[in-house]
């Protein structure tokens, strides 16, 4: 599936939630059930420091396809990371570079990606794009 197809799928999923409780419970469950990065791999090199929560981002690539792994110590942040990984990972570098992340806004979680929120998420998205840009250039 393309980045936009996945985004549209998430927007559709979220449209069934009636209130913020359901939505956050879903995100929290997503966060709890996603063992994203092994504890031993949570090195300082992969750490993107936010003021409020910490985020780790790892990247691998094979034949132009970029695979991201990320994690956080805060479960809501981790749940949102889960969504971002669904959208951005296992995609061609070129598509990641050109992607427009509209689903976060559409599902009402825009505040989590605000520069003042300092939870590491915005820096993570920037970092993901930087990797993709670099890989795209090498290719």
């Amino acid at each position: 599936m393309t980045i936009n197809e996945i985004q549209d799928g998430i927007i559709d999923d979220f449209s069934y939630f009636d209130d913020w409780m359901d939505k956050y419970e879903y995100i929290i469950d997503l966060g709890k059930n996603l063992p994203l990065i092994d504890e031993s791999e949570k090195t300082d090199e992969k750490l993107i420091s936010g003021c409020q929560s910490r985020v780790w981002l790892g990247v691998e690539h094979k034949e132009g396809i970029v695979e991201f792994k990320a994690d956080s110590d805060a479960v809501i942040t981790k749940g949102i990371i889960g969504l971002l990984i669904q959208v951005m990972s296992n995609q061609p570098a070129k598509d990641i570079v050109e992607s427009e992340l509209y689903f976060i806004d559409k599902i009402g979680l825009k505040e989590h990606l605000s520069p003042t929120r300092s939870n590491g998420l915005l820096s993570m998205v920037k970092q993901m794009k930087m990797y993709a840009v670099a890989l795209n250039l090498i290719k």
Binding site: M21, Y24, I28, Q52, D73
Partner: peptide, 22 residues
Amino acid sequence: GTHPYDIGTILDKMGIAVRTGH
């Protein structure tokens, strides 16, 4: 078993303003 950021985020949804972080 919880992170302060998560508690603060949920309290915000309930109209409760607290501070979280260092």
